[in-house]
Design a protein around this nucleic acid. Structure first.
Lengths: 192, 192
DNA sequence: TTCGGCATGTAACGGGTTACATGATTGA
DNA sequence: TCAATCATGTAACCCGTTACATGCCGAA
């Protein structure tokens, strides 16, 4: 039974066979929005998945010192992925450094707090723009409406990103208003 | 320079001195909404923070085989926490198993996909209710409006939880509608 | 008397990040 | 010629989870 990373890689390969290098890059960009991995994780995991009979590879002419291998899922690999998707999942703990900082924000003065929230807000705005740009590439793609296509699933996750980032922006704006309200109106802004 | 966990513990102790045991419990509930740790992480980290001069402890009569220690931040500890709160933060990668599964949901039939989304939705609804209950305990607490109090910061993080969980529910409802739309109207529901 | 809560620690293991290591091709 | 990109791997370290280990007190 593969790890979470293994299932991420199977998901990538079910969409399109790739080399380890390509997988490492794809783990940064489309999949990286919700699960990341470096190449030093990818290569050993591919070897493990192949030892478990879930992947095969063919060698292609490569440019590096070692052979270049293009991987694809075996029928068993696709079946394992399919089972995992709908398997039981217990609610996973959240891990959010930004919120952890905000939880101690009462220790700093409101000006500095405002600066922090503005920086957090900028990060969310950037992510929102990236998700909206990715979503735009699916506009007019007929397959994105068919639940049996990868494009449909990509659309689901991107819409999720857009909605949660919009909510985060709403939250930041609310915090900025609260911080402004909590200070006397004439108070000079020390932020930035 | 303490780890993220160290700053979480300093944040807890800046609000109220506690024993290691109490800290481990507080890491499950209020702080656990956005950062968790088990007791096996807490005890060594407390020793490290004390070695760094950021904490002190006094021994209190305890019931276990070892001495019970109540920790509190030193002035240096509070200062370190204050600096960390407003320090530079690079955007941290998201890690969300639920979204990772949904990304491969195109491989399963729409009925099973609907069942998965419904379970995800239930999890978000549960968290939302918990956050709203926690928020309700701050209703009418005057300190929650003053940016210099821990109650204010708690309110910030709880409102963030409410807004993001509401957005998640909105997303789940949208996905359920999309999945229903993608199937012929008379199709028998295979969900569950 | 037995179970749950208080109370503190250590050890083993697994996953993730960072750094080390190698080497070909292409474009500035 | 120098840097970036393609391409694959290993090693060290840190962090988090799970399990091991001990033992008192109060309630059922």
């Amino acid at each position: 039974m593969p790890s979470d990373l293994g299932h991420a890689l199977l998901g990538l390969l079910a969409r399109r066979p790739s080399t380890g290098y390509e997988l490492a890059r794809r783990m940064q960009r489309p999949v990286g929005w919700f699960w990341t991995a470096g190449h030093s994780q990818v290569y050993p995991e591919l070897a493990q998945l192949e030892a478990d009979g879930l992947l095969t590879h063919e060698e292609v002419p490569g440019r590096g010192p070692r052979a270049t291998k293009r991987y694809a899922p075996t029928p068993a690999g696709t079946a394992a992925l399919r089972e995992w998707v709908v398997a039981d999942l217990e609610p996973q703990p959240v891990r959010d450094l930004e919120v952890l900082r905000l939880w101690s924000v009462w220790l700093v003065d409101p000006g500095a707090a405002t600066g922090l929230v503005q920086r957090v807000r900028a990060g969310h705005a950037e992510r929102l723009a990236a998700h909206e740009a990715d979503l735009a590439t699916l506009d007019g793609v007929a397959a994105a409406d068919d639940p049996g296509t990868p494009e449909f699933a990509s659309r689901l996750t991107l819409v999720g990103g857009v909605l949660t980032r919009r909510a985060a922006l709403e939250w930041c704006d609310w915090m900025l208003a609260e911080l402004a309200r909590g200070r006397p109106p004439g108070g000079g802004s020390l932020s930035r």
